[in-house]
């Protein structure tokens, strides 16, 4: 069994709080972590390895410090790491990111049975890279998966439950397939001491576009169809009023205000 996990390193907090004096965002000193949804993806791959044997390869793209995310994944029990890190990849949008990840998988780990991703990253929140990778590899995608019911490597079959707005959809698919997971699916394991030692010794080369057969005009800023033209900080939501008084009285006032707002 060969499972691949695509991960991303993100800032720990979605923002970082507002400096009360200057009313600006404070972002310095935020630790980088593995995107929380990706931890569930790693765990799901490791669970499959625990059951069926084989190996787990973890892939990421990012600046040099993103190697930490790969090492953490290795420390959790992943076996191999692929690191796309080059000026040529910088500034990639989701189209260019999924192109590069798909190329990396095709050139370095083409013998996979299943690919796991988190449903989305908590910084960009797009949920677009997983489907993009699946499409480029020409394999089925199973998104928002909250449970893997069955994996049959012999019969090349997977059955999953997808968490949708109004309930759960049970879907069967052929393998290889790409699965994006939500939080509910498992409890990610901790790093082990042996794993940490192994990870610290791992040499993870930085691959550039030509190493994985990417055409440079399709990667990074040059290859990204979308372009950020402006970024601004929205007016922070202003708090309203705290309704004074004893609970009885305060609730009466609140009910009146809600009735007045004509939303009920």
């Amino acid at each position: 069994m060969h499972a691949i996990v695509c991960i991303k390193q993100v800032p720990e907090s979605p923002s970082v709080g507002i400096d009360p004096k200057t009313n600006t965002l404070i972002r310095q000193g935020i630790p980088s972590i593995i995107n929380p949804f990706d931890l569930y993806a790693i765990e799901e791959a490791l669970l499959l390895k625990d059951k069926s044997g084989g190996k787990v390869t973890v892939v990421t793209m990012g600046p040099p410090q993103a190697v930490d995310a790969l090492k953490e994944a290795l420390a959790m029990g992943c076996d191999e790491a692929i690191f796309l890190c080059d000026k040529g990849f910088a500034g990639s949008d989701t189209w260019a990111t999924s192109y590069a990840l798909a190329k990396a998988i095709q050139s370095k780990a083409a013998d996979y049975d299943v690919i796991f991703c988190g449903k989305q990253a908590i910084d960009g929140d797009t949920a677009q890279v997983g489907p993009g990778v699946a499409r480029r590899l020409g394999i089925p995608q199973l998104t928002y998966v909250c449970k893997v019911r069955e994996v049959d490597l012999e019969a090349k079959k997977i059955v999953v439950e997808r968490l949708l707005e109004a309930g759960k959809e049970v879907v069967e698919s052929r393998l290889p397939a790409l699965v994006t997971v939500v939080k509910d699916i498992n409890k990610p394991r901790f790093r082990t001491l042996i794993g940490i030692r192994k990870a610290s010794q791992a040499q993870i080369p930085m691959l550039k576009p030509s190493d994985i057969g990417c055409e440079e005009e399709h990667t990074g800023l040059a290859g990204s169809p979308t372009e950020v033209v402006k970024i601004f900080t929205p007016e922070p939501r202003k708090g309203g009023q705290v309704i004074e008084g004893e609970p009885e009285e305060a609730c009466e006032t609140l009910v009146q205000k809600l009735m007045d707002a004509k939303i009920l």
């Binding site: 991303k8 390193q9 993100v10 800032p11 720990e12 972002r27 310095q28 000193g29 935020i30 630790p31 980088s32 972590i33 593995i34 793209m61 990012g62 600046p63 040099p64 410090q65 993103a66 190697v67 930490d68 995310a69 090492k71 953490e72 420390a75 796309l84 990849f89 910088a90 500034g91 990639s92 949008d93 989701t94 260019a96 990111t97 590069a100 990253a121 910084d123 960009g124 797009t126 677009q128 890279v129 790093r191 940490i196 990870a199 610290s200 040499q203 993870i204 979308t226 950020v228």
Partner: peptide
């Protein structure tokens, strides 16, 4: 946007999210 993005000021990154010897590779 910045799908390959990552974060945080290296020099002050706190709390070990990964193995502590991780900086070595980045020579």
């Amino acid at each position: 946007m910045a799908a390959a993005g990552t974060a945080a000021v290296r020099a002050v990154a706190v709390r070990a999210a990964g193995p502590r010897s991780r900086l070595k590779q980045r020579t």
